[in-house]
Nucleic acid binder design. Structure first.
Lengths: 222, 222
DNA sequence: ATGAAAAATGAGTGATCACTTACTTTTTTT
DNA sequence: AAAAAAAGTAAGTGATCACTCATTTTTCAT
């Protein structure tokens, strides 16, 4: 009864393996996969190490051979995922948008949204863990602020300022413009997530995305 | 060393006391208050009954005299708070707005936001527990949908339709208009919460609220 | 093939978990 | 004031928790 299931989180092994700069055994990878599954499914506090070991098909001691504590197991997953996966992805288009391309703020938002949604779809479990555990782990909050939040804000503000100078966006504080744009897009993403979770047939994705972007662009027009 | 601290959650005793239709002892109230504090602070799963008893100044057995399980303790707090406090409050202005008053959608949003923000400020801990635990307790999800979400949606859609007929809002599906309005307001509330948590001096509340409402109204104009 | 290092194991460890029980104290009813 | 009922308690209960450790198995350079 040897289980050789394909990995549910393709990013995991590669990401953490290259971070540690040494190869991982099959069992180590299965421990991380089981952890992601259980942390996302029932929360870090409610997921026991014995459960993780059982799901990974591994003795409980094996977990602690590689990770000193349960919390270190969580951090081993979340920290590199945040720094090496989430942060670079969030900053993706931001670099080149300043130099060229994207004639309008709407075009920019559309390109941005498409990629971000794809990312969320592929990394649901990771995002769930992040959202659920961030309030309880100050180290994670600090790293999130430092490596994700502040960098994204800095880049995004520059873009907002550019479109403000072009006269396409009201001269509000860039942080305010960002908040309004981001909350609308996050609201779209959340509604999309809930709609597909409850298998609601009423969700017309393209229409909702268009409406959201039009809403933002119109709402920010001078 | 008898502690007669004033209650941190004034709604608690009254709400649950009248729900059970019988008076509560001082110790029962303190158990509920300690539970709210700890559930909000470290999460339901990480808050132990012994901790709750200690904070309430009560023997652990006393908790289980009144609540069969730890989960029943959670539900005793969250269920009536949702049904008797959150739902009625969310529906507050919605009734009379249809018959009269509120000449514009912007005026309506402003009145709405002011009350909702006040509510959030007063019930931070309750809202935290709700947000944190909703994903893990299907019974709570179902009750939230039934008593809060669906009712608010129904009322709010009627209002949106009224303003659409007056030609003040684009003829998008009411659910979409609602999503866009709600996500902007929630984004404002979230930013406000984070700003006051981190004691940031940069937050100009009135300006941010005005910008948010203007953004919504302009974004939804035909 | 051999031996040293790394990986993996499973039977523990004490601590803590939610919860129970036998009993005492307080409150209410008569 | 006596009796009954309700509230509260302290000392448990077995189960499970995160974690350890002595031992075995696997890997891999030589």
């Amino acid at each position: 009864m040897s289980q050789t299931n394909e990995p549910r989180e393709p990013w995991l092994a590669e990401l953490i393996g290259e971070a540690a700069d040494k190869r991982m055994t099959d069992k180590q990878i299965r421990i991380l996969e089981a952890s992601v599954e259980l942390f996302a499914g029932k929360g870090y506090a409610s997921a026991s190490t014995s459960e993780i070991a059982a799901m990974a098909g591994v003795a409980e001691g094996t977990i602690f051979r590689h990770y000193k504590t349960k919390k270190e197991l969580l951090l081993t997953i979340v920290r590199p995922a945040m720094i090496k996966l989430l942060a670079p992805f969030m900053l993706k288009e931001f670099k080149d948008v300043l130099s060229s391309s994207y004639s309008s703020y709407g075009d920019f938002l559309r390109a941005l949204a498409a990629n971000r949604i794809q990312f969320l779809d592929r990394n649901k479990r990771l995002v769930r863990i992040l959202i659920q555990e961030l309030p309880f782990h100050p180290e994670l909050q600090q790293q999130f602020r430092e490596h994700v939040f502040s960098r994204v804000i800095a880049q995004a503000e520059a873009i907002v300022i550019r479109f403000q100078q072009q006269g396409e966006i009201i001269p509000l504080p860039p942080a305010t413009v960002l908040r309004l744009s981001a909350s609308s897009l996050l609201g779209y993403a959340a509604a999309r997530y809930i709609a597909q979770e409850s298998a609601s047939t009423k969700w017309n994705d393209e229409r909702e995305l268009s409406a959201t972007i039009d809403f933002i662009v119109k709402g920010l027009r001078p």
